[in-house]
Design a protein around this nucleic acid. Structure first.
Lengths: 229, 229
DNA sequence: ACGGGGAATTGATTTCGATCAATGCTTGGA
DNA sequence: TCCAAGCATTGATCGAAATCAATTCCCCGT
C-alpha cells in the first residue's frame, strides 16, 4: 500500500469517464484531477478501517475493493464491491467524518485518492461538482437498498440469477450470451450476502435453468428460464 | 390521501428544524418552504409506487411512512421507516426519475410534499441546498448500509437489542431508562427485517437480559447485559 | 507444460428464522 | 366503561442457508 504512482494518461482518461467526473466542464475537471493522487496496493491491503478519520475518498482505476463490516466475533459482512470507475469512501465526508466500514483490496488495485479538504473547497465554489457527488451518493444508496431488498426477499439461487441477468445486460456482451465474472466467486458470494458454499450450490442448481459455468466463464443459454427462478 | 392542508405555524417550525432545512439561511429556507405543500393521509394510504414518475419528495410532519419492495410473489420487504422530520423519496431525483420502492403510510400521517422541478431550480441557484441534500442522502445511505450489515451479521435478538440501545441513546430520555416504541411492533419487525413472531420471541428472550416490555413501553434495567447479546 | 497453493465444490449436520395456526392482549371508539 | 378488531404472543413445523469437513479444480508462476 502507498506505492505512489504518477498519474498517467490512461489514469486520467479513466477518471474523466467515471460517473463522478464525466459531466464536469474541463476547467473543473482539471481542478478536481489536481486534488487526486494515484497509488497502487496489493490484494488484502486495508485502505481504511471503521472509525478512522475520513481524510480521503477514492476512485478505483483497476482491481476491486470490498467495503465490509467486522463484527465483534470476527465475522465479516460485505457492504459493497467497487471496481474500475467507481467511487468509495465519500459518504463519511457528509457524516461524522469517520469511515463507517472497512475497505480492503480484494486483488491488486490502482486507486485515485482524493483529498477531502480540497474537495470541500471545490464544492464550495463549484455547485456542479456537488451535483456529481449527489448522483454518486444516490447511486450508492440505490445499491444498498437493493441489497436489503434482495437479502430479505430472495433465495440464494434467485440472487445469483438476478446478478447473472444484470451482468448479461450490462456486460457490453451485445448479443453474445457469455461473459466472464469480473472477480473471484468468493467475492461474489460476499457481495450477495452468501457463504461461498451457498454460491456454489446456487450455480449448481442454476445449471438446470440455462446457466453453464466453468471457472469464471458464464454462458447463459436460456435467459427466460433464468428470469423465472 | 390528498387532503390538502394549509401549512400552519407548527408545520413550518417542524420543517425548519429538519435536517434538510435546519442549516439554511432564512431567505433560502423561505424559498424552499414555498415549494412545499402540506397534506394528510390515512393509515395504509399509498404515497407512490415503484416505477412511478418521481415528481415529488416528502418530509414527514407527523406519523410514519414505510418504504418497501414488493416481490413477484407478493411478499413485502421494508427498506426504511420514516418519521417526523425525515425526508423520503428524494433519491429518485438523482437517478432515473422513477421511484424504486413503494411508500405507504403506516399510520395516519401529515406530510410536506416538495415539487422536484422547483427544487431543481433552487439547487441550480443555491449550492447550500445541494449540500443539505447531500447530507440527507449520506444519512440514508448509512442507514441502508447498517441494515445490510445487521441483516448479515446479527441474529434477531441482537438486532432488537441494538435497536433498543439506539433508542435509549437517542430518545432524549436522559437518565431515565424507559421509553415508548414510536410505532407498532409489526412495523418495527419489518424495519429490522424480521417476521412479527421473531420480534416477539426476541423480546421474550431479552427479558433475561435487562429488558422489560409491556405494550409499547420499554424499560431497560441492564444496558450492559443488553450490549453483550 | 507442470505443479502447487488457494479457491471452489460437494457432503453432512446444525442453526435460525419463516410460516402456519391458535390464543391472548391492547387500544380505540362508542 | 365495555367490547371488538386488530395486533401481539406462543407453539409447532419446515426450509434455507450457515457451518464444518473433505475432496477436487483452477489459475498463476516458473
Amino acid at each position: 500500500m502507498n506505492k505512489m504512482l504518477k498519474m498517467n494518461h490512461r489514469d486520467r482518461e479513466i477518471l474523466l469517464s467515471t460517473p463522478l467526473m464525466s459531466g464536469l466542464n474541463p476547467t473543473l475537471a482539471r481542478r478536481v484531477l489536481e486534488s487526486a493522487a494515484v497509488f497502487s496496493g496489493e490484494a488484502k491491503d486495508v485502505l481504511f478501517r471503521e472509525g478512522a478519520e475520513a481524510e480521503n475518498f477514492y476512485v478505483v482505476l483497476s482491481g476491486y475493493i470490498r467495503l465490509f463490516r467486522l463484527s465483534r466475533d470476527g465475522k465479516e459482512a460485505d457492504i459493497g464491491v467497487y471496481g474500475p470507475g467507481e467511487t468509495f469512501g465519500e459518504c463519511a465526508m457528509f457524516l461524522g467524518c469517520k469511515y463507517a466500514f472497512n475497505a480492503q483490496a480484494a486483488e491488486p488495485v490502482t486507486l485515485a485518492r482524493f483529498d477531502v479538504a480540497k474537495i470541500r473547497q471545490i464544492m464550495a465554489e463549484e455547485p456542479e461538482f456537488s451535483m456529481a457527488l449527489l448522483r454518486v451518493l444516490a447511486h450508492h444508496l440505490q445499491d444498498a437498498r437493493e441489497n436489503v431488498a434482495n437479502d430479505r426477499l430472495h433465495t440464494a439461487p434467485q440472487r445469483v440469477a438476478n446478478y447473472l441477468l444484470d451482468m448479461l445486460q450490462h456486460s457490453g456482451a451485445g448479443n453474445s450470451n457469455s461473459f466472464r465474472l469480473p472477480f473471484q466467486k468468493s467475492l461474489l458470494a460476499g457481495k450477495l450476502g452468501l457463504a461461498p458454499e451457498a454460491l456454489s450450490r446456487a450455480f449448481s442448481m442454476l445449471k438446470t435453468s440455462g446457466v453453464s459455468i466453468r471457472g469464471r466463464m458464464v454462458q447463459i443459454t436460456d435467459a427466460e428460464a433464468l428470469r423465472r427462478i
